[in-house]
Amino acid sequence: MNLSDGQDGTLYHVGRVRPEPDNLLQSPAQVRTLMFMQIAKLPFKFAIVVVFIWSISMLFALPANAAEPEYAFHKHRLCKPCAMPGIPVALPRQGMVFARSALMSDSTWWYLVDIQQGVVIQLRVRVDTSTPKQSAVEQVSRHVSESDLLEIAKLTNRIWSSEKMLPTRVVPDIAWDLWLFDSDEVRRDFGPGLPDGLAGEAEQLLQRLVDGR
């Protein structure tokens, strides 16, 4: 996995438009599509030779390549326009943000994982209805190992590929929110009660990473 510093330090608030990415890395599926489009332009006999050589080379691919998670080429439930999390830290260009709140509480728990930066952050943010600005009461940051980043990437790909709203278990007085970010693409799932299914897996994974387990 190639990890690069794509963070520009900008603080995004609810309703703010995210900037266009400077450079987008093409997914393996996109690379294969572009390659076959170029092969299709070649003379038939030459194209057959190229495809044959490419097929043989795939047989001898390094085992490490198999560990790289397949990119979610088809993303579902994209949020445009999307209400962004109003938290006092910069949002990731590629990653996940999860929030858990209680109706009778004056604070919200936030979890943020930045795949490019390789960091996970836990925040307890105090909600002040008199101002849109929120302040962090507690904050914990930890670096994430490459194996954990692969696990995060696999989970986010599964969520991106889900065509339906992620399920929830209805419980009174609490709610959750989940955002996925990939450059200018955003997906948002939410619900009353406790997150279930993939959303529940996301919360458990983020809590484990923050705890350092």
Results as ranks from 00 to 15, higher is better:
Cys82Ala: 10
Pro43Leu: 06
Leu34Cys: 10
Ala29Cys: 07
Phe52Val: 13
Pro81Lys: 02
Gly86Gln: 11
Ala47Gly: 13
Cys82His: 05
Cys82Ile: 10
Pro63Tyr: 05
Thr33Val: 01
Glu68Asn: 09
Asn65Leu: 12
Leu42Pro: 00
Leu59Tyr: 07
Met58Cys: 10
Lys80Trp: 01
Ala47Val: 02
Val50Trp: 05
Lys80Val: 11
Cys79Ser: 03
Gln30Gly: 02
Pro85Ser: 04
Ile48Lys: 12
Lys75Leu: 07
Pro81Cys: 06
Arg32His: 13
Gln30Phe: 00
Ala64Phe: 10
Pro63Cys: 03
Arg77Lys: 11
Pro69Asn: 01
Cys79Phe: 10
Ile48Ala: 10
Phe36Asn: 14
Lys75Arg: 15
Ala29Asp: 09
Leu59Gly: 05
Ala47Gln: 07
Ala64Thr: 06
Ile87Val: 12
Gln30Ser: 06
Glu68Trp: 02
Ile56Trp: 05
Lys41Gly: 01
Tyr71Phe: 14
Ala61Cys: 09
Ile53Arg: 09
Lys75Gly: 07
Pro85Val: 07
Asn65Thr: 09
Met37Arg: 15
Phe46Gly: 05
Thr33Cys: 00
Lys75Pro: 01
Arg32Thr: 04
Ala83Trp: 07
Leu78Trp: 00
Phe46Val: 15
Phe60Pro: 00
Lys45Pro: 10
Met37Phe: 13
His74Ser: 12
Leu42Thr: 07
Phe46Thr: 13
His76Tyr: 13
Ile87Leu: 14
His74Pro: 03
Tyr71Ile: 03
Lys45Ala: 15
Met35Cys: 05
Leu59Phe: 14
Phe52Ser: 11
Val50Phe: 06
Tyr71Asp: 12
Thr33Ala: 09
Lys75Gln: 11
Leu62Lys: 12
Leu78Gln: 01
Met84Ala: 09
Thr33Leu: 08
Ile39Gln: 08
Pro63Asp: 03
Glu68Pro: 04
Ile87His: 02
Ile87Glu: 00
Pro69Tyr: 01
Glu70Cys: 03
Phe73His: 12
His76Arg: 03
Ala40Tyr: 08
Ala40Arg: 15
Ala67Phe: 15
Ser57Asn: 07
Ala40Gln: 15
Ile53Glu: 03
Met37Val: 10
Leu34His: 13
Ile56Asn: 04
Lys45Tyr: 08
Trp54Glu: 11
Pro43Met: 09
Pro81Val: 05
His76Pro: 02
Pro63Ala: 05
Trp54Met: 11
Ile87Tyr: 01
Ala47Leu: 05
Cys79Thr: 03
Ala61Phe: 13
Ile53Ser: 10
Ile87Trp: 00
Leu78Lys: 01
His76Ile: 00
Phe44Leu: 02
Arg77Gln: 10
Glu70Arg: 03
Ala61Tyr: 14
Phe73Met: 02
Ile87Cys: 06
Leu42Arg: 11
Leu59Ala: 10
Ala67Asp: 12
Ile48Arg: 11
Ile56Arg: 00
Lys41Met: 15
Met58Val: 08
Ile56Tyr: 03
Pro43Phe: 07
Ala61Met: 13
Ala29Glu: 09
Val50Tyr: 04
Ile48Thr: 12
Pro81Arg: 05
Ala61Ser: 14
Ala64Leu: 06
Ile39Thr: 04
Ile56Val: 12
Phe44Ala: 11
Trp54Leu: 12
Phe36Lys: 14
Leu34Thr: 10
Ala67Cys: 12
Phe44Met: 04
Gln38Ala: 14
Ile39Met: 04
Phe52Gln: 07
Tyr71Arg: 05
Ser55Asn: 05
Leu42Asp: 08
Trp54Thr: 07
Ile53Leu: 14
Ala66Phe: 07
